[in-house]
Design a protein around this nucleic acid. Sequence first.
DNA 1: CTTTATTGGTCAACATGGCTGACGTAAAAC
DNA 2: GTTTTACGTCAGCCATGTTGACCAATAAAG
Lengths: 166, 166
Amino acid sequence: MADVKPIGKALFLREEELRRGIELMFFAYRDFTGEADSILAERNMGRAHHRAIYFIGRHPGITVSNLLTILCITKQSLSRVLSGLMKDGYVVQRLSANDRRQRLLHLTQAGTALEARLTSVQGRRFAAAYREAGVDAVAGFQRVLQGLLDNSTLHQLTQHDQSTIE
Amino acid sequence: MADVKPIGKALFLREEELRRGIELMFFAYRDFTGEADSILAERNMGRAHHRAIYFIGRHPGITVSNLLTILCITKQSLSRVLSGLMKDGYVVQRLSANDRRQRLLHLTQAGTALEARLTSVQGRRFAAAYREAGVDAVAGFQRVLQGLLDNSTLHQLTQHDQSTIE
DNA sequence: CTTTATTGGTCAACATGGCTGACGTAAAAC
DNA sequence: GTTTTACGTCAGCCATGTTGACCAATAAAG
């Protein structure tokens, strides 16, 4: 509301444009997660399990702490999910050699397979959307999404080094 | 995995590109909803209340049925949320003249005010992201998000007429 | 060596928001 | 007029987020 012109129509169009973005985010996120949710539901798992599997696959040997930093949920929420994943044989913990307090998280074969399946399903959707929209649109898409991030999230993502492997 | 070139590096880059999209969607959606969630939490409300308020504001006089079609949740989930919103004075029901089975939903003054506040917060984030990214990026953003939608959602959105007012 | 901080985990208790199934009531169909 | 359909509500279950208290192992600081 800082640099709004004193013209009724311009204001209206601006608001409509913003609402369009808000609504697209809602619907696209819902549909984007829908297929994976179905696969997970078959195995009595939810989106929380997916997130854990995804980021453990992405950062093998990640500590619980670092996973918490990525997910921004409480230790207890994650603990419940990890317990289930270990019980069901998707994730294993190994003790760290450096610091034996740390449990380093790894996917099992079953975990890797499930992660691949879920990522494949979501990747196909992205691949189709990217193909339809074109390269320039994809760049714009990523720029806008990046602009929607909190600063802390942005910093986290730009440090995409080996820091979680230790 | 249909039209993949038999080159290791190209495949890797493609997968990384898709994973970047998947992750950006996760983080951006979380941060995008975070501020509104905080405002809602102050009033003992959640994201479900927000969705209901948002779409009632968008389609004054919408029926419960039509709201269900938009949200894709069960009648019971919505009913619980609507009961709370009516109890707290954000929403009122009016009986339809045509079909007295229907309850037509409207925001109260408090509901309108809350909707405006929440939309303003999310709109500001979008406005900032749009400003940084530029007009072309915004177009690409919208094209890609649209491509991520289920067909049924896309059809629903392209029929943005008065059908919900009846 | 002792103290303190960090890391990881557990348990209890609670709220939100999905779900299913049972069940009214109003309108439509026969 | 009875049956069927449409619309909405209620009760209760489950997953997943929350807070707070607490414990154990280890690292770091004194």
